[in-house]
Simulated assay, not measured.
Amino acid sequence: MPSASHATLTTSVTPELVRGALELEETHDGLLPHRLPAWARAQCTDGQLAMAESQPSGVRVVFRTRATVVELETVPTKRVYAGAPPRPEGLYDLLVDGRPAGQASATGGNTVTIDMSTGSAEMSTGPAGSVRFDGLSDTDKTVEIWLPYNEITALVALRTDAPVEPAPASGRRTWLHHGSSVSHGSDAASPTTIWPALAAAAGDVDLVNLGFGGSALLDPFVARTMRDTPADLISLKIGINLVNADLMRLRALGPAVHGFLDTIRDGHPDTPLLVVSPILCPMHEDTPGPTAFDFSRLAEGKLAFVASGDPEERAEGKLTLNAVREELERVVETRAKDDPHLHLLDGRLLYGERDDAELPLPDGLHPDAAAHRLIGERFAARVFAAGGPFGVGD
């Protein structure tokens, strides 16, 4: 048997070993997970969405093995914001039989440098890197490597000291979730501690995470993707990006939500479907967008955001978070008369005024690691518990 300190067997990463992605693209760097299919990506040329959907939030490499050493070779693509403090390195979380067993970051890879003042981006390429986990038991086990939520990650190969085989289906229900950067993971501690991953673990379900940073915008191609994706449970967290982007006015919001839900219902007519309104974000509760970088904080070496709209503009139909919550409540109440499997959750029950006092949003927009844990725990307690919208048997 090979020495426990040497990974001598190489296994190509194939689709059978990847979960949580909707499509895998063969690239010169390796197998690239996508969270939107190619036909959907072709319908939008927005760079923010392209980056967000190819960052593998919720995607994991899963296999059975007796290996005591596991190495995953990848080509990461990291982001650098010119003039801003360095972003945290992406983390890979190792789970063994569902329990945390290690963390690591990959070296090498590509770097995208973004100029926030102009929106321009410059790519520099680099070599493949790898993450290594050793000291594992030599028993037969299920190994999961959760990929960084904040780094595009091309998968090259596994190296182990014992053979690898695909893990059988878990038998758990599949939860399909769509949301904004908060659902994507910003600024959680690691991929398994973003709030949807925490909630999925507590609810004993398999997560497919369509949380797209800056890009939960009621896009029709996302609704059609969700319509066509097998799922036992579906949730939508809607609102903050509509305000961030100053994308639409109140007149358009209700029909857009109806259309999004209609499309999902075309493929999932009776699936439990939960609409989640925005968590508290003080700067946008009554002030419209667009959201802008706070360049005064940036000069201090801190990344932060401000609301650049005028509260008086709500009268003209510009969206605030309170306006969005009111419209979502109206839409869901109207539809629920004929759709007993449709539910609404006020996001302020996940993170509200009292929480903002104790765990304020560090950059004015995104929850920190502690707040992610709070949101995940509260979501699980309200949604997956007996009597909740996703409770077993409901």
Rank of each mutant, 00 (worst) to 15 (best):
P2R: 08
S12K: 11
A21F: 09
L24I: 09
H34Y: 06
R35L: 07
L36Q: 03
W39K: 04
W39N: 01
L49R: 02
Q55P: 06
G58H: 06
V59G: 10
V62Y: 02
T74C: 13
T74S: 10
Y81I: 14
P86M: 15
G90V: 12
L91T: 13
R99N: 11
G102M: 15
G109L: 03
S117T: 15
S117L: 14
S117I: 01
E122A: 15
S124Q: 14
G126R: 05
S130M: 07
G135T: 04
T142F: 10
W146V: 06
Y149A: 09
T153D: 13
A157D: 03
T160A: 10
P163D: 15
S170C: 10
G171R: 11
R173G: 09
G179V: 01
D187P: 00
A189P: 02
A189N: 11
W195H: 11
A197T: 10
A200M: 07
A202C: 14
D204A: 13
D204N: 12
V205T: 07
L210H: 05
L210N: 02
L210T: 03
P220Q: 01
D232Y: 05
K237P: 01
L242N: 00
A245D: 11
D246Q: 14
M248K: 01
R251D: 13
R265F: 01
R265H: 08
P272E: 03
L274R: 04
P278Y: 06
H284I: 13
V306M: 12
A323T: 14
V332M: 02
T334K: 05
R335P: 01
R335W: 02
R335S: 01
D338K: 05
L349E: 08
G352T: 08
L361Q: 14
H366Y: 09
D368T: 15
A380S: 11
